[in-house]
Design a protein around this nucleic acid. Structure first.
Lengths: 342, 342
DNA sequence: TTGTACGCGTTATCAG
DNA sequence: CTGATAACGCGTACAA
């Protein structure tokens, strides 16, 4: 290895080593095939491999005017819902030679704006916003403006969640899934429900809550007990405690996601309730890591890795400016946590 | 808003709008304070905000010769072990104005090399390798070479796992933790163990396995039953089934991580065993999402978010070429899955 | 087919 | 303190 020079190996080094011009060296890598003589091409490739050359992505990006970076923005990467989506995104990105940068907003929706600006600074090819929208007009307006700026700088935006913005959207059928789940629980014989709803403003939580309630109303059953809390394990725990403290009669509890459901399970156990005998419980998402809790959780399965992959697919197939839409359905999975009621 | 021009807003646009030179505009943003008159500075800032300007990171990187991107390479972002570390990395990165790009190797160690090359292409400020090392000399050699190239291009490498390479390392005390866990289990009255070991070549798995076994040997107890399998939930399930099929007497099972332990729990249930009555079970990591399984899992707690944060700290405090070392201790947490044996 | 030279958006150097 | 202008590494019209 002749690594006399300090610093990174550049295209010029490779060209010199191969005895050709930079242009030829450049073409050898990404030229529209057989535009460069095979022997020269091989010489360049050999030189590159000898020097262990890797093109400077930044410089390529500048010269080309675009990158292969896609930014993924999540609320919390440690939450299995988002890490599952992220896994799908990364898998698909790999197949398309794209790089993924991940930003975690720590559940502060306003930080999404900062990330988007940062992605714009990187001239990212696309931004995938996987966190649920929040129902705050001023935030939506700011986001809309930033999305506009992002697109103007040449990037594409994909939103996972609700169709509230004029961009490519992957619509997760939260409302429909929750409705189907409620219908199923009713068929199993449950009548008196409690809903551990997430934060009031989080659309995903709200859609699930409303879908569930809709089915309950339609069946002319008693109004469910509703408790709002964080969209996390601790939120589920707290909400469940609140429900129990109300001392109302409840047959079954619907937590608007699995993570909350697991928190609710812990709360029940801490209060001496046996599951599913004393209380039935259902969640939403079918998080893989949580499939082994006991009793196994009835839930609505979402193909989260596919959601991520679909987002990337939208990115790479983007052409016109018209927003496209993909629908993701949930599938009700009945397990031991909601046995048929005798 | 006067957005007549198509395409991204550049520094020149801002400078023109503010009626100053590019140099001044540039300095207004990152000049070493009060080098530029306050009124001019304000004019520039106002113009920037009016045009919604965001500096092109790629161009900055080229001009400066370095970036604020740190690359994080994980085996599988959907695995809570890695997503917890990732969360720590992102949190700390945010505080230091760093961007994080994440690559998932899908548990194929050789893909680490590709990612490292890709990060070198990006001229990343640093690469954090969070996957455990694998005991394969040819891979280690290739990795060593790539790390060398990466450092030569100006980047810093931090490895989370074992001190096997001449780079900054966060050493997780797998061996010591497992040993302490075994000691604790022995004190609780367990005598006949099975170890659900991970893949033979994965150092993290091996260290935990060996640490546990060491304590058992030292106590002159019967040789544990050992089954190697994948480092995943399904691996734990399969290994547990194998153990049960051996029909040997076993009091307690040590799965080398929590995810495997949960798989083992499922296997026990499927075979009609009650936990912890018929079988005691312990894991490693203390994954947050799994803290609510029933019976609660005895394990070794690792401060995974801190691990990620420490990695970033090593990145930002890097100066000399001497590799530094940080030690992370595990803390044995005894829970219901391993009750005192009567 | 190959080489020359310019441009991408910023920072940094050097005059004014 | 401010303004030209030369890098930075690469892609690509354009010329040879």
């Amino acid at each position: 290895m002749s690594d006399h020079q300090p610093g990174p190996v550049t295209l010029l080094d490779v060209a010199t080593e191969a005895g050709v011009s930079m242009a030829t060296a450049s073409r050898a890598f990404n030229g529209s095939t057989r535009k460069v003589h095979e022997d020269l091409r091989l010489r360049v490739l050999a030189a590159a491999s000898k020097l262990n050359y890797t093109a400077n992505t930044q410089a390529q990006a500048m010269a080309r005017g675009r990158t292969n970076v896609v930014g993924l923005v999540v609320h919390d990467i440690a939450d299995p819902y988002f890490s599952s989506i992220a896994a799908g995104v990364m898998q698909a990105a790999m197949e398309h030679q794209l790089l993924v940068t991940v930003g975690s907003t720590m559940r502060r929706p306003e930080r999404e704006l900062d990330y988007l600006a940062s992605l714009r600074g990187q001239r990212s090819r696309a931004a995938i916003l996987s966190g649920s929208r929040v129902d705050k007009p001023e935030l939506m307006e700011a986001l809309n403006k930033e999305i506009h700026a992002f697109e103007r700088s040449g990037g594409r935006v994909v939103v996972i969640g609700q169709q509230r913005l004029p961009v490519d959207t992957i619509e997760i059928q939260n409302r429909g899934g929750a409705k189907a789940l409620a219908t199923e629980l009713i068929a199993l014989g449950y009548r008196r429900f409690a809903i551990l709803a997430g934060p009031r403003t989080l659309l995903t939580a709200r859609d699930r809550f409303q879908g569930f309630q809709e089915a309950v109303s339609k069946a002319r059953l008693p109004e469910p007990v509703i408790v709002n809390d964080e969209f996390t394990r601790d939120g589920g725990y707290g909400a469940m405690i609140t429900v129990l403290d109300l001392k109302k009669r409840v047959d079954a509890v619907f937590a608007v996601n699995d993570v909350m459901a697991v928190g609710a399970m812990a709360a029940c156990r801490d209060r001496g309730l046996r599951l599913p005998t004393d209380m039935a419980l259902a969640g939403f998402d079918d998080i893989e890591t949580l499939r082994d809790v006991d009793p196994a959780l009835t839930t609505v399965r979402l193909p989260l890795a596919d959601v991520g992959a679909t987002a990337v697919e939208l990115v790479v197939t983007a052409d016109g400016p018209e927003p496209r839409r993909r629908r993701i359905k949930g599938e009700v999975i009945v397990r031991a946590s909601t046995p048929r009621r005798s």
